[in-house]
Design a protein around this nucleic acid. Sequence first.
DNA 1: AATCTCATGTAATGGGTTACATGATTTT
DNA 2: AAAATCATGTAACCCATTACATGAGATT
Lengths: 188, 188
Amino acid sequence: MKENAGKTKYVVLGMLARCPQSGYTIKKWLENEHSHFWQESYGQIYPTLKKLVAEGFAVCGETPQKENGRGQILYSITPTGRAELEAWLREPPDIEKLRYELLLKISFGEHTSPEVLLGHLDAFIRRNEKLKGDMDGYIAFFDKLQAQGTECTNSRLTALCGTYLYGALKDWAQEAKRIISEKGSVEP
Amino acid sequence: MKENAGKTKYVVLGMLARCPQSGYTIKKWLENEHSHFWQESYGQIYPTLKKLVAEGFAVCGETPQKENGRGQILYSITPTGRAELEAWLREPPDIEKLRYELLLKISFGEHTSPEVLLGHLDAFIRRNEKLKGDMDGYIAFFDKLQAQGTECTNSRLTALCGTYLYGALKDWAQEAKRIISEKGSVEP
DNA sequence: AATCTCATGTAATGGGTTACATGATTTT
DNA sequence: AAAATCATGTAACCCATTACATGAGATT
């Protein structure tokens, strides 16, 4: 059993539940669709795949298909793997611990100049604007897919969370800039 | 030098820059004012304090003051420590990597029932409502302090970020519930 | 008397990133 | 021919939490 406390196991299982694939494609999918709320490195994914096989949650069939692709190791989820995934899905998710370095710097802002803080906030606004734009793009894309009959409500929901989240962070940062600027202009 | 890449060092320096204090009080302050965007354990704080002294960024004066409190080791920041803090404040903050387990579960939601997802979202809404309430309370408190002449703009800004963030997450979760419910009621 | 909070610390463990190593195939 | 991408993997390291150990003073 070993009490594999990390979540990598379930991310990989979830990916394999969609379709049989390789560690490489799992990473690529995470980088695209999930990178804004989850990320894994190869150093986690490949060992996890081997563990899943050892535990009977997945099986691997080596398919060096010469037709169009290169040799890659395809993993598939097993019925017990599916049961394991479903059990995890039913459990309440962990509360997330955030670590916003920007907020730390704001919090200790009395030890630097307002200009420094405003600069950090500018970069933060730009990043969150871009991220929100990305999310809006994803949503439009999923709406198109949906119109074509492809079910993708759940993926769309995660993108929607992104628009709410990044939009709010951007709005906050803009208000924070205003507050800091006003405070600075009052004093000599 | 040792390239102490973690942020604990700067959190501790920032705390000591406010006033000389002990590892214990640093932890307590973090738990109160900063817990929503930062957290440290004793296992990090105490060794960091010793490292800071070894590097000349802090000094410790043992003060087993018998008057009202128990013996605690007070640390103070040095001028070089202050310079180190200020240099860090000037650098652009790291981009934060989020890991929202809830979004993973939503994303893999096709492998469980809508009721499970709705339950997770309910808990999420309740938690974020509470957090937003806490933040609103902090803001009111800081406004009162400000009215009494105590400067606390920066602390207020971090709480304000909390209201934006938790408010947005709550709003998203409510919309997500609606979308999931509607989808479920369309099908047989 | 027992228990709670104050207060400081260390060791074990775990989770994750980064750097490194390798080699095939495709694109420029 | 060189560079980029595909593809798999390992080892070292770093960061952080948890559990453990200790003991004094305050509270019930």
